[in-house]
Write a protein that binds this DNA or RNA. Sequence first.
DNA 1: GTAGGGTTAG
Length: 588
Amino acid sequence: MVRETYTYTTKNNGMANLESVIPKCASFSQIKQLQAYIFTTGTFKFSRARSKLLDLCAIAPFGSLSFAISVFRQIPRPLTNDFNAIIRGLIQSPQPSAAFAWYRSMQRGSFRMDALTCSFTLKACARVLAATESLQLHANIIRFGFMADALLGTTLLDVYAKVGNLSYARLVFDEMQLRDIASWNSLIFGLAQGSQASEALDLFKRMEVEGLKPNEVTVIGVLSACSHMGDFKEGEKIHGFIRNQKLDTNVQVCNALIDMYANCGFVDRAYGVFDNMRCRKCLVTWNTMIMAFARDGNGHKALKLFEQMERAGVQPDAVTYLAVLCACNHAGLVEDGVRLFNTMGKHEVKPNVKHYGSLVDLLGRAGRLKEAYKLINSMSMVPDVVLWQSLLGACRIYKDVEMAEIASRNLVEMGSNNCGDFVLLSNIYAAHERWNDVGRVRDAMKNRDVKKVPGFSYIEVDGLWHKFFTGDKSNARWKEIYSKLDEIGFRIKELGYVAETSFVLHDIGEEEKENQLCYHSEKLAVAFGLISTSEGTPIHVIKNLRICGDCHVVIKLVSKIYERQIIVRDRVRFHKFKDGFCSCRDYW
DNA sequence: GTAGGGTTAG
């Protein structure tokens, strides 16, 4: 065993030497040796060396927060920096909210707080999404007179955005006396991640007006906004800007570009970026591209890329495996999925609940329900809601009442109040004509006040975004849209279409159910696309939930009758409709 | 009590 020791000089420049040696500590044992030295020589009372060592001790890579805290306890009169070191350490710890107690104890003991104290405590708020605490800190920061600090202001607005308080993030941004590029970037990211993607783009445009030069962080943020919105036109413009500014030598920028093109439904363009990168690909690059193929339903390309990645010597991680399992799911590659799942251990990747969920889904869809159930029981962690929902969905396809009841019981026990779960179970009973049970489920739905996330779809035409809810009449051309839908209904019935009313979730009559189906948001968006874009051009629609089964059938027929390619991005994947077929081959 | 702290892809 190698003993790591330092020799310390105790001449008159001993303090300076001590401080220069602190950052060179390369292990916990060296930290401890220094700590012992500081204690025994009485240097402990010199706060600077002490708090530097505390700093080092409280954070990764080889620190020990508990040791740092025990050292802190021995300081007779700790100073601001000693507290700061501990609070900073707590941010990365498994218990970031403990930072609040430390902060309060500083307040109670009338210790002086500085901007760093606030900055670190704010970071802890972001980690645990503490909305109330961030408001309290904001008030303190104003009281202390720290608002002029641009760095602290950026931290504050960033934390507000991360805890979901976008209006306050904006407020802080607007009131900052000094904003620099990081402040703008922070708000752009906040808006992009917080479902205000178009506001993020507006902010980006305002930056140009105000003569600020966006950097690589900025473009990553706006690309992420385009990706969320599926805004291909803006995304392409930003790509042009990136090329002009030569920002495409940054790997993260390239990754964001790949993600943007893929999320807008242009997987070939995504691959174009991937293939022509002038910088070194990293793990995220591979993962993003594999996921892009997976969501596009191109399982074989995804798996080929995975092999290529291994040959390139890049070690897969948990996300890589999620992407390849997802690829197997969307392409129905059951055996490949099982095989890949079993090789995870070889690469030292521990399967998490999402990997199990993916495999359960894969087995379930293939009708291997018993295996799927066995897999769930073999898990060392607690199965999540998604997992049981996958199993329930598979039970619906294979009309397995017994298994469906098991899955539903687990969902109820987990407190799931999802409308779709109840409907699935009721569908399975209905398929077996067990009408009493159907009624029982319906009553349970009424009693439990089940939640339903409203579905919406949107589409861009001539630079304007149009959003549709079910039965929406807010669009200026709603009358034309509805008459187009009538026409569609008439023409598809000629082709033998019959409405699949089991997709309707409400307890209403058959005819009314059919009407509700007719006006699902994705159908409204497609009809609007048909009447407002020129013949033969593709129609891109984005939906917040999974596409409904009836809409899937109808859009297939529409693609044939109207000779249009229709691309629908739903929550899970892309559906590319052409000539009456969908790229998912009805397996999704 | 030199400073340290803010924005970044899947």
